[in-house]
Design a protein around this nucleic acid. Structure first.
Length: 830
RNA sequence: GCCCGAGUGGUGAAAUGGCAGACACAUCGGACUUAAAAUCCGAAGGAGCGUUAAACCUCCGUGAGGGUUCGAAUCCCUCCUCGGGCACCA
């Protein structure tokens, strides 16, 4: 027995080992590379530029569809990348079939810290690492069959590219929007290097090596004056079709508020203090004033008896702001300066304090404190026993102390009795007439710290000359390339690594020719991504960053898809650069991205964020090897709405794989029978729904409809070519490799990429008879099958007479009958 | 703390004022097979009445509570939970 069972089980084991081959549902491993090569060789997806079009001139409308280009990390492609890329690819393939001239490019945001860190550790030049990573990313992306125009690929680290990044910087500089300033930056004693914000952990330690000695120190930095554009960056959000939440985040980030600047005299001195307030109507309730500890006036006004207390507080505050940044609900602290200010509305003397809850970077760095109507001021006043004076009366019964809303002014001289908005207006005018105040607008937005103390970034094309000062490198000398270096590690003295390349640093001043030094800071990673969408339009132009006519033809970007993590910075910075270029006449639109969509995050199968430490990372390479690219594409689109966060499911992938296998087998049994009316109807419903859903980026429901179609065909005896042929075209944007192969099997010799999208016949969608639901008081009690043309009156009569309805009406009076033709009848009875 | 978004079967979801759960996954049953895999067919929100059993039928059900409406997953208010953003911004 034992022998027998052993010998019988052996062949089974062998069959099992060979199973993966046998189980293959269709030959995706042959189909997919075949078509990818075909598309590349035939440049199937080349976008046609206006002047390169063959005669006659371009008839088709343009469409620019952009993906957020990836940072090519050493880890390779993540399943999150193909999500957005598949969505835009489906959209593009569909639009091409609809006759659009589509620009759909891809490139690499390739400057960045990891390659530099690897260079420090191993001495490998970052460009070597970067090239290798780009090659991996390109291979992985091409393996998914996206319809990019690969002749337009850009790489931010390519000197032909960053020449123009530097050129744009010079335009910004020449426009007076770039300046140098001493700014505190994170410094790690352990690394002997400047840290980027993201390299500092929440607990104040260094993220690279865990060092504890991390603090801020002032360093000369390049700053871009983005605040000069705050108003337009805010206002123009009205004109873009972006997700509500992203617009809201940008609005909050810009943080516009209206109010007044008010001048307070310092009692017994020639000094004045200007404060910004959004509530000038509460001026009569100001019982003290607070300056930021760093406020320059503090030294001038502090009385001698308070000097030491103030000095101590300022030192502690400076140190504390370094470490305790994240702690919002800490106790209020502060010190009296000994000086008093005169309130211009009532000549009252109020004490001037310093406190770290007032920040130098916002407004004027000084506030008038109205504890009755400001939560922070109230906390402070209660702690230090400062008076609280009510000057706004709430319109409801709430407590006036701590009331911060709009109400009616009380105890406020000339504005007493006025509602808050009018009070603000009147008192601001009054201040203006006396020259002690004026209407003012403030923004939370700060200028953009643009320099990095790094090697692997675009050199800032500036020369420091002892005679001429900061001098731009002549545009004819661009690109200013990075010097070759042996050692990429930080210099240890807060100088960027480039400072060690002395041959490179020492140069002649472009203006006067005397010995000068090059700027050694480099640009942040944001720089290259600020304008890449413009370079795709004209990627090989050596004379300009983009040719004017091409820019005019392709811009603006019609659809931009990417992750919500770029909601603020990337999107704000590129809007800023774009507006500068617009003002200089280099681009033709005030906004770069018309429509923006954020794809949601893909979580691991355990519902947690994918990460190595959880061991739940799905590698697209593995999925493609086992199930094919079409399955991966279709699955990612079927998971749920594009914008939603959703967990991965390998079983879901298999379901999609089975679906594609079913599709494949349908075409093995093609025949020339004529389709049943039911099948024809489903086909036309599918044509309609798939098209409409792609327009709305609702890919999951489009796939559902295709499944309904396939289920319908499967249930039928025949496989009519006349319905299966148009279906290939519907499937093509989603599973392009499979669709191309089926198209060929159907006898076509050309790619289906530009086949016209099928049209549906509305006449076939019209139902002759419809099922009408009859409700009594909102509950379904009967169903009627009636002609679709049945009138309201007929429906009402039928419904009331229905045998299943009668019992529910017994002993009741019909109050009202609502008839929705084609849908339902609702009888309200009591 | 403030701002934004979301909560629907065992799971991913659909339906955005008109039949809740389309389409899939997982599950269960059947066909095919010596068997398994693959494939195909079918069942299925919960509770109950009732029945040999099923169909039929009844009630409940979209985070909780209230409201508007003939009718609410959908609109309004309050609350709870989760996710994202900001965080003393005067």
């Amino acid at each position: 027995m034992a022998n027998l069972s052993l010998s019988r089980s052996e062949p089974a084991v062998i069959v099992r080992a060979a199973m993966p081959e046998l189980r293959k549902k269709y030959p995706f491993d042959q189909i997919e590379p075949k078509w990818q090569q075909h598309w590349l060789e035939n440049k199937t997806f080349a976008a046609r530029d206006p002047q390169h079009s063959s005669t006659p001139p371009l008839q088709s409308p343009k469409l620019y569809v952009l993906d957020m280009f990836p940072y090519p990390s050493g880890a390779g492609l993540h399943v999150g990348h193909p999500e957005g890329y598949t969505a835009t690819d489906i959209f593009c393939r569909y639009k091409r079939m609809r006759g659009f001239n589509v620009l759909h490019p891809m490139g690499w945001d390739a400057f960045g810290l990891p390659a530099e860190q690897y260079a420090i550790d191993t001495g490998t030049h970052p460009s070597v690492t970067t090239k290798k990573n780009i090659d991996t990313f390109r291979r992985q992306i091409q393996m998914l069959g996206f319809s990019y125009d690969w002749d337009r690929e850009v790489d931010t680290t390519d000197p032909h590219y960053f020449k123009w990044t530097q050129w744009i910087f010079l335009q910004i500089f020449k426009k007076g929007l770039a300046y140098e300033a001493e700014i505190p930056v994170w410094w790690c004693d352990g690394c002997k290097a400047v840290l980027a914000n993201e390299e500092v952990n929440a607990d104040g330690t260094c993220d690279r090596r865990g060092h504890k000695e991390v603090y801020r120190r002032p360093l000369r930095q390049w700053i871009l004056r983005i605040t000069a554009y705050a108003e337009r960056l805010l206002a123009d959000l009205e004109h873009v079709n972006w997700p509500h939440s992203i617009k809201e985040q940008q609005r909050n980030w810009i943080g516009r508020s209206e109010g007044a600047n008010v001048e307070f005299e310092v009692h017994g001195s020639e000094f004045g203090v200007e404060v910004f307030t959004t509530r000038p109507d509460t001026l009569f309730g100001a019982t003290y004033m607070v300056l930021a500890p760093e406020h320059p006036l503090v030294e001038c006004i502090t009385t001698s008896d308070q000097k030491s207390a103030v000095e101590t507080y300022r030192t502690v505050a400076a140190k504390k702001s370094e470490l305790e940044r994240g702690m919002a609900d800490k106790e209020k602290t502060g010190v009296f300066t000994g000086a008093c200010a005169i309130n211009p509305v009532n000549e009252e003397k109020i004490p001037i304090w310093i406190a770290d809850y007032v920040m130098m970077g916002y407004g004027t760095g000084a506030i008038m404190a109205v504890p009755a109507h400001d939560t922070r001021d109230l906390e402070f006043a209660q702690k230090f026993n400062l008076p609280v004076r009510i000057v706004v009366s709430p319109t409801d019964q709430s407590d006036p102390i701590g009331f911060v809303g709009d109400g009616i002014s009380v105890n406020s001289g000339l504005i007493t009795g006025l509602p808050t908005p009018e009070a603000k207006k009147k008192i601001t005018e009054w201040l203006g007439e006396r020259g002690v105040g004026e209407f003012a607008v403030n923004y939370k937005l700060r200028d953009w710290l643009f320099s990095r103390q790094r090697y692997w970034g675009e050199p800032i094309p500036i020369v420091h000359c002892p005679k001429c000062g900061t001098v731009p490198v002549p545009e004819s000398e661009l690109p200013l390339q990075l010097p070759e270096m042996k050692d990429y590690s930080p210099s240890g003295n807060a100088e960027p690594p480039l400072a060690k390349a002395t041959d490179w640093v020492n140069c002649k001043c472009p203006q006067c020719g005397t010995a000068a030094k090059r700027e050694t800071n480099t640009m942040p990673q944001w720089a290259g991504s600020c304008w890449y969408y413009l370079r795709y339009i004209d990627p090989h132009n050596a004379a300009a960053f983009v040719a004017k006519d091409k820019e005019k033809y392709w811009m603006p970007v019609d659809l931009y898809v990417g992750g919500a993590e770029h909601a603020v910075l990337h999107l704000l910075y590129s809007r800023f650069w774009h507006k500068v270029l617009y003002d200089l006449g280099h681009v033709s639109t005030p906004e770069p991205f018309t429509r923006l969509v954020n794809q949601g995050m893909i979580l691991g199968e355990d519902n947690r964020k994918m990460s190595k430490s959880w061991g739940n990372v799905i590698n697209p390479d593995d999925v493609v090897r086992e199930y094919g690219a079409d399955t991966l594409r279709l699955y990612e689109m079927f998971m749920g709405p594009l914008e939603a966060t959703k967990p991965w499911s390998m079983e879901g992938v298999q379901g999609i794989y089975r679906f594609l296998g079913r599709v494949w087998r349908l075409y093995e049994e093609l025949d020339d029978s004529s389709p049943s009316p039911a099948l024809l109807k489903v086909l036309h419903q599918t044509i309609k729904k798939v098209g409409e859903d792609i327009e709305a980026l609702a890919f999951n429901t489009a796939i559902s409809q295709m499944m309904i179609f396939v289920n319908e065909v499967t249930a039928q005896q025949s496989r009519p070519r006349t319905v299966l042929e148009p279906f290939v075209l519907l499937l093509a944007p989603y599973a392009p490799h499979l669709a191309e192969e089926l198209w060929q099997i159907l006898g076509h010799t050309k790619s289906l990429a530009c086949e016209p999208w099928p049209t549906y016949d509305p006449a076939l969608l019209v139902e002759d008879t419809v099922e009408i639901v009859v409700q009594v008081n909102g509950k379904v009690r009967a169903r009627l099958t009636v002609s679709a043309k049945a009138t309201k009156e007929e429906l009402e009569k039928l419904a009331l007479a229905h045998a299943d309805v009668q019992p529910f009406l017994a002993g009741k009076q019909v109050k009202k009958v609502i008839v929705v033709p084609g849908k339902l009848v609702n009888i309200a009875a009591a």
